[in-house]
Design a protein around this nucleic acid. Structure first.
Lengths: 171, 171
DNA sequence: TGGAATACGAAAACTGTTTTCAATATCGAA
DNA sequence: TTCGATATTGAAAACAGTTTTCGTATTCCA
């Protein structure tokens, strides 16, 4: 099992790279560079985790309070389209956005007590899925696997309980 | 790999059992039996697959056109609460409802070409997930795994293409 | 049966997201 | 630079799916 650790500090170099990549995307598409978009993406890439639109907007407003929902939504769509960001839904009705980690793909573990969303990756799991699909004459483009449950380390878990737990749904 | 086959014909006995179970649930909760609820659940249990509210309402209206969205939504919530039905979301923004199969738990394979949603279950996959969770000090309450991709049997797949493919999202 | 409690249906309200629209900003060409 | 075509913005309206409200109708126990 590989649990992916997010570094606590933001990697400035990485952020700059992503900003550059986005700028290139914008140019390639013949779109325009704007102050608002720059604010939004630079804020986004400096946040960690699975960010909802509202969370992002709140942060963005600290820099420029005149930026509204529409622009944030639009910019997030562009980020997704550029491939720099992925949209996820964990069943609480909110879209969440995630800048790519160093690891191409990963699955999620969601604690229903404290709301913590952690990531993991396991090649055997991936391989097994491939095998099952194969047996079923199915070609996987992508998948998602989410484990809903609870951290066993209750002290740390309860301590995190500031953010409310995701409502969730699943199997 | 176990692929779950839905029988083409509705199992009348099973449906009656579920209707009875729901009736019992209603009674236990001190709620009332109504013509509308009966229509809705009996329609629901005779449909196969992953049913959206709109699909169900359409069917229900054939029996009693005066039944509206609100009652269908309310009844579905009761069905979920009763444990007879599960709510699922496959990322197209629609809630879908599924009467329990004979098999307790299963995962999904969603063809993005023809929209077919098939079910599968594999104990090794389940076990592996448990193991990963264990290693990560996490207790799984439930999970969901969805494989998005395409049927390899293109002829059958294309033939089914009447219903539009689920929009989807995932990893 | 009477009547308290529940359910109904239509419409309004809500939530998260997308679109509209008039005003503004960007940026390549002149 | 300035122009001007085109893209972008922000506020507000529109949207889609779902939930709630509210007055009326139904259920069902005493």
């Amino acid at each position: 099992m590989v649990t992916l650790n997010r570094t606590r500090e933001v990697n400035e170099t990485l952020v700059k790279e992503k900003e550059a990549a986005f700028a290139e995307f914008i140019q390639r598409k013949g779109l325009k560079t704007t102050r608002q978009r720059n604010t939004i993406i630079s804020t986004f890439f400096r946040l960690r985790g699975h960010i909802s639109v509202e969370e992002l907007l709140n942060e963005v407003k600290k820099v420029n309070p005149r930026i509204g929902y529409a622009t944030v939504y639009r910019t997030l769509h562009l980020l997704v389209e550029s491939g720099l960001v992925e949209e996820r839904r964990f069943g609480d009705g909110l879209a969440r956005y995630e800048g790519h980690s160093d690891v191409e793909h990963h699955d999620h573990m969601i604690c229903l007590e404290c709301g913590e969303i952690s990531e993991f990756y396991n090649p055997r799991l991936e391989a097994l899925q491939e095998k099952l699909a194969e047996e079923n004459n199915f070609e996987i483009f992508r998948h998602r696997l989410e484990l809903y449950g609870a951290c066993k380390d209750k002290t740390a878990c309860q301590a995190r309980k500031g953010k409310k737990a995701a409502k969730s749904q699943g199997a």
